[in-house]
Nucleic acid binder design. Structure first.
Lengths: 231, 231
DNA sequence: CGGGTAATTGACCCGGGTCAACAGCAGTGG
DNA sequence: CCACTGCTGTTGACCCGGGTCAATTACCCG
């Protein structure tokens, strides 16, 4: 989501330093940080997919957002004493950690960066709200279509679409936890979506055949992504 | 949510000036700001209840958070070109507007205020995530109980609880839009809750008879409210 | 005292959940 | 290189929480 284009050339080196600094790898299906932990740093997803989720004591799980390559997690979260949610790797992930001290210095020295980060955080919040709308109001079919549209658009922004096709590392269990459904019903819904010909979800990839049509069934309105906004 | 206690005495006057500045009144059931508008200011709820919501083209509506007296809406939102959601008054509301220029100056001059605002924004985001968890995973009864717990706790923090009782301006339609249910089913669920004796929702007020019991059925874990955190 | 908003109730229905069995596939270790 | 194991996806029968529709009764405020 981080839009480097919005920053001046003078700011770029500051970010580059951060990115190559302290890069870690996380295996698929491991947690990057867990609810209750004391957050000490901010991190950037360099490669791979991750998700933010919350759980109920009895094991029910809700995924509340996906992190794609280039996304920044939890700006300023170190102000709080403990994490109120977990972040888990979906695929193998590379993350660049930025300590709170380093991060605050960056903000102090580069006001334009601070603004870009605010901007990023606001968009993240907007996406999470749209998510709540999906979970609360869209039915299974609309919700699945919406998620396809959103991920496609976000990956397109960072140049990860090739010929209407994106990588799709999400299992039916991920989708179920994201949409508030069961895996069984996600399976039925995927089959239905595939049958319409608007898009095809198959092992490892999503291909969109008719974006406008898909957006239509999803009641997808891209303005919540704020692509047009300059930081 | 704004915790004045966390600020030094030197910062208080700065905030007071803002609050008495440009106070407006909004009638119940009117929108304070609407999706698509160009946001130019930040505002503080001085009195009354409001809610943040999103709508689908066909009229389905999802409330994604409630604003209670003392809450600040949409920090820094003026960075974005247009609102991705609406804010509506539930009761008559008094709001103090703060222009973006005024707001930025405040942040520049008072770093402690900036930090308190970040802190507030992070808690707001945490509350919205818990909301998604409710909508996606809790059933009607658990969700209603959870909402009762949350509003009770938040009002208690700002001193608006008297003898286990809070004002409750929410109609069944508000609850339906918040929880992703229909008014009919909200009605059934309220009746059920009242029958258990854990709490009583009646016209205009909510009385909690057994907070621990209610938290138990709600799977309520207050840590997401970050009450313990100092700014 | 009238009109619009809010709550209540009941009959019926459906989207999605539950449970269970099975098949495919990928990694792992021997 | 094969066998094992644990994820992942698929399918089917049955069920239930919550939706739909509709009519009726409070309310509250002017």
């Amino acid at each position: 989501m981080l839009n480097y284009g919005a920053l001046s050339p003078a700011d770029a080196p500051a970010l580059d330093v951060l990115e190559i600094n302290r890069v870690r790898s996380i295996k698929a299906r491991r947690d990057i940080i867990r609810e209750g932990d004391d957050p000490k740093e901010v991190f950037l997803i360099v490669r791979g997919w991750a998700c933010r989720y919350k759980m109920l004591e009895d094991g029910r799980r809700q995924i509340v957002s996906f992190f794609l390559p280039g996304d920044l997690c939890d700006l300023h979260v170190y102000i709080l004493k403990e994490m109120d949610h977990s972040v888990g790797a979906i695929t193998p992930v590379s993350i660049a950690s930025i300590s709170s001290a380093q991060f605050e210095k960056l903000c102090d020295d580069h006001p334009r960066v601070t603004r870009a980060l605010w901007w990023d955080a606001l968009i993240g919040a907007s996406i999470e709200r749209e998510w709540t709308l999906t979970v609360g109001q869209r039915d299974a079919y609309e919700g699945l279509a919406h998620l396809c549209c959103e991920l496609y658009m976000r990956l397109r922004l960072v140049g990860l679409v090739e010929k209407q096709r994106i990588t799709w590392p999400l299992t039916q269990a991920h989708l179920a936890d994201a949409l508030g459904l069961t895996t069984t019903h996600v399976g039925r819904t995927i089959r239905r979506l595939n049958e319409t010909g608007l898009a095809t979800i198959s092992r490892g990839s999503l291909t969109i055949h008719d974006l406008a049509g898909l957006q239509n069934v999803a009641l997808f309105n891209p303005s919540y992504l704020h692509f047009n906004a300059a930081a």
